[in-house]
């Protein structure tokens, strides 16, 4: 085994890596934001008294959670193409990741909704809050606060999973790595470096979510009760 590592040639390409990392973060950000919206709507839908709505949301969650992301990406990519619609690889990647993470978010937020004690809702009804007020103040925010740690871990996993979109030539971090390694023949160094960048990105995301948590759930901080 001849160990002949040359990280210098790879380091020289840092602008490309940086651009790839930014695109990965962008993908993660779009999918996280839209996925949260889908998750809240999906969770409300799954608890709907309307059986058809609840059923559709249930099917969405189960289908997405039981098929690989890679296949979902191909289906969205080729599905849109066969409908004659042309989108950039980035748009397709963002759409596929959003659809994917939306299902997981739905499940997590639903678990949060289910954890709100019945008595809380009855108390809110007793205080003559409207249905919308109850959902907003009594169900949704406390529920999201409860599942916030699970949600954020899911979003970090999503960021890592976005590497799969390199397969439809979205120009994110893994795609950049593939290009650089085929250009320099330094596969080992390239992928080690990319792995380190991904680890840094996940640490950055965790730190970001922790700070965001302090801002949007100040009650926890004030009471000083760990979740």
């Amino acid at each position: 085994m001849n160990l002949n590592l040359d990280f210098a040639t790879i380091f020289e390409r840092w602008p490309a890596f940086l651009q790839g990392a930014l695109l990965t973060l962008q993908l993660a950000f779009i999918a996280t934001a839209l996925g949260t919206v889908i998750g809240v709507l999906g969770a409300i839908g799954r608890r709907s008294s309307h059986p058809i709505v609840a059923r559709i949301c249930g099917i969405y969650v189960e289908v997405i959670r039981n098929t690989p992301l890679l296949v979902q990406i191909f289906l969205v990519y080729f599905g849109l193409a066969s409908l004659g619609l042309k989108f950039s690889a980035f748009a397709v990647a963002a759409a596929a990741l959003t659809i994917n993470v939306g299902a997981y978010t739905t499940e997590i937020i639903r678990a949060g909704f289910d954890s709100i004690p019945r008595g809380q809702i009855e108390a809110a009804e007793g205080l003559a809050l409207s249905r919308a007020q109850i959902y907003w103040y009594v169900v949704m925010w406390p529920a999201i606060e409860k599942v916030y740690p699970s949600l954020t871990s899911q979003f970090v996993l999503l960021m890592l999973a976005s590497s799969v979109t390199s397969q439809i030539s979205a120009e994110e971090l893994t795609a950049v790595a593939n290009y650089i390694q085929s250009d320099t023949y330094r596969a080992f160094e390239t992928y080690i470096l990319v792995a380190i960048v991904y680890i840094i990105l996940s640490l950055v995301m965790r730190a970001g979510f922790w700070l965001l948590g302090l801002v949007i759930f100040p009650r926890r901080r004030r009471l000083g009760t760990p979740l």
Partner: peptide, 25 residues
């Protein structure tokens, strides 16, 4: 655990398949 959970499986796959041969394995 932190290292592996912070790296996408895809990159681990590339590292073993393309990276190890570059080291002569």
């Amino acid at each position: 655990v932190q290292l592996i959970q912070g790296t996408p499986l895809l990159v681990i796959m590339f590292l073993t398949y393309f990276g190890l041969p570059a080291l002569g394995v």
